[in-house]
């Protein structure tokens, strides 16, 4: 059936079953492959996106649940790597393999929108849904602090 979505500020009409996870609609139907599949059960965070500025696991979010809401993916953060999180991530060379980093950055974006100056404990609480098999955790932590600084200007 035809479903209307708003993704990164643009309207899309997709013809999928309403129970289809948002993840696969983003990746296969809309073609936004920056959002990653990791587990399918909301246990790794690779699929993290924002729905109305709050963190959501797109692998367990039915597409029907985001109708009328604003979905933001990694591709929607900026056109030119200028978002404070992207600037900080580049400055600190956070990614290794990079596969989990879209999810890490989106989880961090949700954190900073709630807590513009997070403590280490805030970061632990907000970011422990996200697995990084390369173990870039200490750089993720420092890059979030740096992004908070950049955002303050």
């Amino acid at each position: 059936m035809a479903i209307s979505l708003t993704i990164n500020g643009a309207s899309h009409t997709v013809d999928v079953e309403p129970e289809t996870p948002l993840l696969w609609v983003l990746r296969d139907t809309v073609g936004l492959t920056g959002t990653k599949y990791g587990c399918g059960i909301a246990k790794c965070g690779a699929c993290t996106v924002l729905v109305d500025d709050r963190k959501a696991f797109s692998c367990t979010t039915k597409v029907s649940a985001v109708v009328g809401k604003d979905v933001t993916t990694i591709e929607g953060l900026s056109d030119d790597n200028s978002h404070p999180l992207q600037v900080a991530w580049i400055e600190q060379d956070v990614p290794q393999c990079g596969y989990c980093q879209s999810g890490q950055i989106m989880a961090a974006a949700a954190l900073l929108s709630q807590r513009p100056d997070p403590s280490d404990l805030d970061i632990d609480a907000a970011m422990s849904d996200n697995i990084c098999r390369c173990g870039t955790y200490s750089r993720i932590r420092s890059a979030i602090h740096r992004a908070a600084e950049i955002a303050k200007g």
Binding site: T33, G34, T73, E75, L77, N81, I90, V94, P95, G98
Partner: peptide, 20 residues
């Protein structure tokens, strides 16, 4: 600086699973 970092902060780096 790593040459691949800019591709890995905006979702544009293509992994096998992203091939279309």
């Amino acid at each position: 600086p790593r040459l691949d970092t800019p591709l890995k902060v905006n979702g544009s780096a293509t992994y096998g699973i992203d091939v279309r």
